[in-house]
Design a binder for these strands. Structure first.
Lengths: 211, 211
DNA sequence: TAGATTGTTAATCGATTAACAATC
DNA sequence: TAGATTGTTAATCGATTAACAATC
């Protein structure tokens, strides 16, 4: 724990990118790769790649480089992909439904188990195999079904209330798509996907590139 | 341009957050705010807030702080929100449709004009007022309609081909939701929303928080 | 004017890059 | 063994924080 906590967010956010590129290499049947070669395709410096990986252990071999399959699996384990995760989605609007349908998550062992909404028109519907349930049943559901993570896809005004409810139910991990910053206890992990922030950054870069 | 280019990405990515919090304050009828007060609600240090803002000009007043409305408008201008933007979406699947429906973008002056897909079942359908058109017509459409930005919502395998096509049509700004890194010329801006990377980072944090 | 708070310079901290001895 | 490339330490770079004079 002490050692883990010392790993910076900068490093952690690069891990999924390593994972993705290594999967690519694996699919192209490439058996080994040096930090220099990986640098050429992923765009980080070779030095940074070696530094990053050495936070978690010495996966390479001098004079050889890294075994692609082994490194891919190790990084998968580091990320926690050796387990499956049960997810619920709160807010069954367009975005919630899109995420329920998004197969890239399922491939990695994330399974959307149920969706919740307060809109009576949506309750009872099924998106793929996932039923949209009444928000009133969420506590019962979470406790019964050992849910790992919750995705908030509500509007900004409901998001904090929903988060409070989730925390109450014992959820420790919230992936938040609502355009607001949630207040939660220290032991609850929140990862934000702030689409508007991404769009505005993008717009700034576009605008200034034209000047 | 020279001055602009010196502004670090770290600062640029904080701008949308200032913009959002200032809008909040404005809606709550708060007229002025000091860097210290803003620090308390936004979570950056007061020092960082003053540093950030001073990259773009002296918006504050000693002994007073910042005028909320003025600062909100100034940051909006810096981000390029004093203009409207025409957007097309390529890939009219669940995610593309969800983004076409996402009203938070329209509020800020972003208008989705058309969607494109290669699936004959989708072509001709309308999502809200937005027609799904045949990918074959994209070049003609972009040239005729002065499109500013394109959103890629295809799968990873088509994304690079779509990007090439967009660059060919003269598009200079691509918001990419496909789980891959696009190769484009230097004068084309790409902003990625890598959902899988966010999910895996999130999973890592969740996993390690339990250890 | 006195108090408050900015704008800005200097100090610190952390992350990235460079270098190289260790070793496969 | 010789060549290649890692793991790791040291140097550099950039971003954040602290401090304070300027000034409203």
């Amino acid at each position: 724990m002490d050692r883990k906590n010392r790993i910076s967010m900068a490093v952690i956010r690069r891990l999924p990118k390593y994972h993705r590129y290594l999967k690519d290499l694996l699919e192209r049947d490439i058996k080994r790769i040096s930090s220099k070669e990986l640098s050429d395709i992923i765009g980080f410096t070779a030095s940074q790649i070696r530094q990053d990986l050495n936070n978690f252990g010495g996966f390479g071999q001098q004079g050889y480089g890294y075994n692609v399959e082994e490194l891919y699996k190790e990084i998968g384990k580091i990320l926690g992909l050796d387990k499956n995760y049960k997810i619920i989605i709160i807010g069954a609007g367009n975005l919630g439904q899109a995420l329920a349908n998004y197969t890239n998550f399922q491939k990695e062992g994330f399974h959307v188990d149920a969706m919740f909404d307060i809109n009576p028109r949506l309750i009872g519907l099924k998106i793929r195999d996932v039923e949209i349930m009444d928000m009133d049943n969420i506590e019962e559901y979470v406790i019964k079904n050992n849910v790992d993570m919750a995705i908030i896809c509500t509007n900004k005004d409901s998001a904090q209330d929903v988060a409070n409810k989730l925390v109450e139910c014992g959820i420790k991990a919230i992936w938040n798509f609502a355009p607001t910053d949630l207040k939660v206890p220290d032991d609850v992990i929140v990862e934000n996907v702030h689409l508007v922030e991404s769009l505005l950054t993008f717009t700034y870069l576009y605008k200034t590139s034209k000047e």
